[in-house]
Design a protein around this nucleic acid. Sequence first.
DNA 1: TTGGTTGCAAACTTTTTGCAAGCGT
DNA 2: ACGCTTGCAAAAAGTTTGCAACCAA
Lengths: 151, 151
Amino acid sequence: MPEAEHTHPNVTAPATGDWRAELRAKGYRLTPQRELILAAIEDLGHATPDEVLAHVQERVSSVNASTVYRTLEVLEDLGLVRHAHLSDRAPTYHSVSGHEHFHLKCRGCGQVTSVDVDLASALTDRLADELGFVADIGHLTVFGRCSRCAG
Amino acid sequence: MPEAEHTHPNVTAPATGDWRAELRAKGYRLTPQRELILAAIEDLGHATPDEVLAHVQERVSSVNASTVYRTLEVLEDLGLVRHAHLSDRAPTYHSVSGHEHFHLKCRGCGQVTSVDVDLASALTDRLADELGFVADIGHLTVFGRCSRCAG
DNA sequence: TTGGTTGCAAACTTTTTGCAAGCGT
DNA sequence: ACGCTTGCAAAAAGTTTGCAACCAA
């Protein structure tokens, strides 16, 4: 499959520093690894655990893969990052500092596009009205073909 | 996570036998394994490769896991089965003999619900009109909370 | 007979886990 | 000092691959 490129460069708001307080409030500790991993995700926009690890290790080579997995879980619990499944393989994590969005993935060129959740409101409304189902659109990935590849 | 139960028992149309011809037409061969694996998916409704293997092995213990993976790929190529990601782990395969549908997965109780693709037409239309993106709704899984678990 | 298929074993990729040492608070 | 965290190594889970024997056509 072609390499994924992203149409929505992550122009994220800088971490306010108040997440560190929330982290402690939940009984977690603030460690260099956690700051590095969160920063990596904000740098990379969308990244798999593997890519996060590589990015972090460019500066601090001693950081371990298990730490990345464990930290990603903590950061997701804190609501600082989210993940989606952009391929049949590893999940992709992204920062939540911006607006909530879901993803479109083109099977032709591999391009990933971020779309505002509003665009799916018709679906979420119907699911809620007709089935009482509260959808988590931020986790959604819609596969298909982009305009160029659909032809 | 709770075990998934399914609200849409697969009442699939019996294989007409004409898939065997299509299979040969594409240069594939008709083998007992392929018939068993397709039958397993129609029996099970929704199943991971692992579950398919276990089901097939109840009758023919010699069937191998690689054969299941390879066959699932062939069957999907023929359009006889499809897969969706109902968990962060193994993919789930289902028969395409019925109507096309996408899935709802409840994070509370794990329940999986099949929903007719029509219900998502508002989303697919907007994606097509505004972005030219042709969505493959049959592959979609929407995570969230069912009416009971949403409270 | 020909070449697509299968079973087997080994390799691989991604993620999880046990544990002792380390460090944030 | 207490106990959450980390690095490491091994295990687990899921999938893929090379290859010789096998069998559908």
